[in-house]
Amino acid sequence: MSDQIDVHKVARLGALAVSDDEVAAVGQKLNAIVGLFDQLAAINTDGVEPMAHPLDQVQRLREDVVTEADIHEYVQQIAPKVEAGLYLVPKVIE
């Protein structure tokens, strides 16, 4: 059996809110999903390399030449809050 999922923890990792009212219902669905994964444990994968990509390709390299132009005025039209060319967010406290 899989562990019971810690809803508050996974919500925090995903920067999502789960209210106290929802926790039980959300947790039940998440646990049902995670329960599906139990059958993986039964499969013998000894000596099998994890596969991150479907094809055995290798990383291609790009020449170190600048081809991108300044587009900040254009892309900042779709930004929620901008001033003086900067994206504004509620004060970052270190």
């Binding site: 001033e83 003086a84 900067l86 994206y87 504004l88 967010v89 509620p90 004060k91 970052v92």
Partner: peptide, 14 residues
């Protein structure tokens, strides 16, 4: 993150 100049906000330069 630039913390000066913006009342209550930080400015992000990427």
């Amino acid at each position: 993150s630039l913390h000066e100049d913006f009342e209550g906000y930080s400015g992000i330069d990427l």
